[in-house]
Amino acid sequence: MADDLELRFERTVQSESRIEPRDWMPDGYRKTLIRQIAQHAHSEIIGMQPEGNWISRAPSLRRKAILLAKVQDEAGHGLYLYSATETLGADREDLTTKLIEGRQKYSSIFNYPTLTFADVGVIGWLVDGAAICNQVPLCRTSYGPYARAMIRICKEESFHQRQGYELLMTMMRGTQQQKDMVQDSVNRWWWPALMMFGPPDAESTNTEQSMAWRIKRDTNDELRQKFVNMSMPQAEALGVTFPDPDIKWNEECGEYDFGQPDWDEFWQVVKGGGVCNEQRIAHRRKAHEDGAWVREAAAAHAAKHERKEGAA
């Protein structure tokens, strides 16, 4: 019986059909998905902080509205993704507890600080760009609710990316101080953006099984290469350079050669030693704990209301 179920699951995945919440699935598949989707949801929620850092200081009302709307979208993405985990039997409250206790990860990129307003544009261009490269293949991932959430998220992310790039284009047409601000920001974010694809394939532990289950569709190194290939013409159009002396067009391969990020720094940040790791978690924990009485009140009110309706 169990073998039949497993066989049917394997066939569904191999034939590129979708697994839906009520279908049988192996425990490992369920756990891997919950971990991956939760990590993605946490990334959206923690990602609100570095950009939210500039809402109060945005230098024009139009940019303030765009930034506020973008950060609001990130909360929305977190919400769709937590909902997708709930279709797998996870619980949002439990996942939030795991996040604030440091038992689940989020994207390490958000442990870098946003130091100037140009960072808002560079995050849109490079960080959202890298996220889209990572996420576009997930629109065809084997788990239905995740794939559908990703289609919507990718569309919105792509719009954010365009807004970020447009901000940088505008700044590059401005004063010398603004141009310097953009280049400085690109210098700080380029390597962390490349790290967003994860460690080199040889060191990546989760890739093989996830590829077989069609949860993951390309390897870290493939996606990283794709990202560099796409970013270079954009940098040239913008008039900025990447801080990598080894980056150059390779005629033979038809793509760019490039240097390796500092993987020691990557692991240091992943393990909690980045500039903002503690701050990001403390901020999220404070919001969650300060809001506990509000959530309790809402639940108590709803329960009283139900009792009244039941009695009527």
Binding site: A65, I66, K70, D73, H77, G129, C154, Q161, M230
Partner: peptide
């Protein structure tokens, strides 16, 4: 979904989830 940068060059009418108001 093949080119993440396609929309940077314009022409594609993408949307905000909630809008800028």
């Amino acid at each position: 979904f093949d080119n993440a940068y396609e929309s940077l060059l314009g022409g594609e009418d993408a949307h905000w989830a909630f809008g800028t108001g």
